[in-house]
């Protein structure tokens, strides 16, 4: 494991169900995450994924790769192009730094309209 290593990509089909299930599991009842008509009134073409779900998926991407003993230390994400139903988000990661048992990974989640998420995850991977 060294800086520059790439993680295998993870494809997430962005279904309406995922968006709504993620919003509810994160206790987020903002209408734009479940009500298409109200989302449209706020200038969005449809409902879109909430940030907590994106955060959860980014965390899952890293722990799926590093295994159940990996401990997330920090997840910092910025959202760009929204995840609307029917799209697919492909998560990719590049190791930025390895320091002892701590790895920093740069993560990007791209969908059909651009970069949905960019961020950095720091994870401890006990030997």
């Amino acid at each position: 494991m060294k800086a520059g290593d790439r993680l295998p990509p993870l494809e997430i089909p962005v279904t309406r169900t995922l968006i709504v299930a993620g919003a509810i599991a994160s206790r987020d009842y903002q209408d734009v995450h479940h009500d298409p008509e109200l989302a449209r009134r706020k200038g969005s073409p449809d409902i879109f994924m909430n940030i907590l779900t994106t955060n959860g998926l980014v965390g899952r991407y890293i722990t799926d790769h590093f295994g159940p003993r990996a401990q997330l230390r920090r997840v910092a994400i910025r959202l760009g192009a929204p995840n609307h139903p029917g799209d697919t988000m492909v998560l990719t990661g590049t190791v930025e730094e390895v320091e002892g048992d701590t790895v920093t990974v740069r993560v990007t989640g791209a969908n059909g309209i651009g970069k949905h998420v960019t961020g950095t995850v720091t994870v401890r991977v006990p030997a």
């Binding site: 997430i12 993620g22 509810i24 994160s26 955060n55 997840v75």
Partner: peptide, 27 residues
């Protein structure tokens, strides 16, 4: 419910020594 939504099957989040997924912090 969170793990179901996220498709997260990590064994770290089930069983007697389960922890919550750290990314649930805000939830």
């Amino acid at each position: 419910h969170w793990c179901e939504a996220m498709g997260d099957t990590s064994p770290a989040y089930t069983g007697p020594d389960a922890i919550a997924p750290p990314t649930m912090l805000q939830a």
